[in-house]
Nucleic acid binder design. Structure first.
Length: 422
RNA sequence: GGAGAUGUCGCAUAGUGGCCUAGUGCGCCCGCCUGCUAAGCGGGUUGAGGUUGAAACCUCUCGCGGGUUCAAAUCCCGCCAUCUCCGCCA
């Protein structure tokens, strides 16, 4: 959530930010009104409560008729206090609900517009020319089945559509990618983590996934727990309700975890193979830093993502996501998209978001400064999403005979070339 | 899953209905004193919100949420966490 003080100090800033996202400005006006109601109800409650307390002190000392009279007065007050307290609570709740529905202020640097209005920042590497090489590229499903790398039919049999088993070299590939990603992250100064994939509502809500993204989240009603769609959730909630000592920022964590996504509303989209699935594993980077450092850290996260894709020798481009496509928490988002030969386009394999203080306010994560505690900034970025990375490696590394050449970075962990099963 | 115990300021502890405006010790910060350090002395030290030009002030905060009461750290109910024992299990 945003800083509520902005509602009083600079509501026009908020209106402009809503416009940039293509969302309603009237929410800002509702918020200003709700804030006024909240504050006046607090004032009336505190006035009666203060009176009640001061009479209470007299009651303790008084006796006889005097005491009886005081008791009569304060008895009546008691009902008023209860009423005022309830009114105050309701006004505060209404305000908070509204405040939480307001997305983070889109950065001025984020391109204006919706999904299609992204800006390409850079393109790296050259997609292979399969026509010139004299063969038709196979798609990842065909390649993967021939290599015995995954099994989507049995995935569907056991768990349903959009599930799969990684098998043989596929399973080994994920483990190799995980090992490589985690050790690189550790070299870069990240603390390796393996977090819980089931979290309480607070963690889910605090990271902004129960807003417009709620339909995409798996929920276990019997236990009131959510399956996380990314380890951003347990990593952000890791320091919830904490005040971090000055000088301990930035704190960088790299987590390996499964990711569960309902993919509601994606029926018929990317149905082939393991491109869009209900579960995959991922190594995710997450950073707590100061508001001053957040933008620079965002660039660093992008730099690490690029270094990773460079190491995997994949052709990719970097996209600056438009304001209308940012999601609730981010002010700016860079996506890295790898070239997928059989689709003839670049597809998202990683994403780096700067959430500034938005998540930290909801999760109450602060740092101690000389001027007192203040909320930290949080950022997250994909290092390696397994299934999509495997797809990109297979399709881009394929050879005419159906074998797949792997990048040098993986050679210590796997053979240089994966051969199809006979 | 069953039984029991515990939860107070960074840590340790005191506090069983009004004198709690939560005491004390340790730690920490600022002074003083002192060849240096330590000790000693004095002051400060949870966080949030409201109000304000600022200060003063006010409200909330004793794991969390309800309730009883004129009044709750204190009594009652529910939940959560931790510890011990039993059961089950990788």
């Amino acid at each position: 959530m945003i800083d509520a003080k902005l509602l009083r100090e600079d509501p026009d800033l908020l209106r402009a930010a809503q416009r940039r996202r293509g969302e309603s400005e009237s929410l800002v006006d509702e918020l200003v009104a709700a804030d006024e109601r909240r504050r006046s109800s607090i004032a009336s409650y505190e006035a009666v409560r203060a009176e009640q307390k001061s009479i209470g002190k007299l009651v303790a000392k008084a006796s006889g008729d005097e005491k009886a009279e005081l008791l009569a007065r304060t008895k009546a007050l008691s009902a008023q206090v209860k009423e005022a307290e309830a009114a105050q609570g309701e006004a505060a709740q209404a305000f908070e609900r509204l405040l939480k529905s307001l997305p983070n202020l889109a950065s001025e640097q984020a391109p204006e517009g919706g999904e299609d209005d992204f800006v390409v920042l850079d393109t790296v590497g050259t997609p292979r020319d399969f026509a010139a090489e004299g063969f038709e590229p196979k798609d990842h499903l065909e390649l993967g089945e021939a290599l015995g790398a995954f099994d989507v039919e049995r995935g569907a049999k056991v768990s349903g559509a959009r599930f799969y088993y990684l098998t043989g070299v596929g399973a080994q590939l994920e483990l190799a990618l995980t090992q490589l990603a985690m050790s690189k992250a550790a070299e870069w100064g990240f603390t390796p983590m393996i977090p819980p994939a089931l979290v309480k509502p607070r963690a889910m809500e605090g990271t902004g996934f129960l807003g417009q993204a709620a339909d995409d989240v798996y929920y276990l009603p019997k236990d009131d727990l959510y399956l996380v769609g990314t380890s951003e959730v347990p990593l952000a909630a890791y320091h919830s309700d904490e005040i971090l000592d000055a000088g301990t920022l930035p704190r960088r964590y790299a987590a390996f975890s499964p990711c569960y996504r309902r993919e509601a509303g994606s029926y018929g989209k990317d149905t082939r193979g393991i491109f869009r699935v209900h579960w995959f594993d991922k190594v995710e980077m997450f950073v707590y830093t100061t508001p001053e450092e957040a933008a620079a850290e965002h660039e660093r996260l992008l730099g690490w993502e690029r270094a990773w894709l460079d190491a995997l020798e994949l052709p990719y481009r970097v996209v600056d996501v438009a304001a209308g496509d940012l999601g609730l928490s981010a002010i700016r988002k860079f996506d890295c998209e790898a070239w997928i030969p059989t689709q003839g386009k670049y597809r998202e394999v990683s994403s780096a978001s700067n959430c500034t203080q938005f998540q930290a306010r909801r999760l109450d994560i602060r740092e101690r400064t000389d001027e007192g505690p203040r909320h930290v900034s949080t950022l997250n970025g994909t290092l390696c999403a397994m299934t999509r990375t495997i797809i990109a490696l297979l399709e881009n590394g394929q050879q005419a005979d159906g074998s797949v050449r792997l990048p040098k970075a993986l050679h210590g962990l796997l053979p240089a070339v994966l051969e199809p099963l006979s």
